[in-house]
Amino acid sequence: MAELEEELKSQIIESLNLEDIEIGDIETDAPLFGAGLGLDSIDALELIVMLEKFHGIKIDDPSQGKDIFESIKTMAEFIRAQKA
């Protein structure tokens, strides 16, 4: 079950060019924005593209973004729900 979470961490590091961050540094439950990784609105756009590119999922309703990208855990749950 944790495979998807690890995959997402790796994709985020690559997509957002987080040079000094390793997979082990990202906590699955930690917030991605503000505290935690400290991502911003441009990163949110990059994450939307990342979901489409690597997982084939388009986010049609932008207001969903806040909940989907809260953490690695919420992203993984969203992907699983979409693929179920």
Binding site: S15, I42, L45, E46, V49, E52, K53
Partner: peptide, 13 residues
């Protein structure tokens, strides 16, 4: 490369 799909914003901006 990506057929004008899934373009990331950073490089464009």
């Amino acid at each position: 490369e990506q057929g004008e799909e899934q373009l990331t914003p950073t490089a464009f901006m």
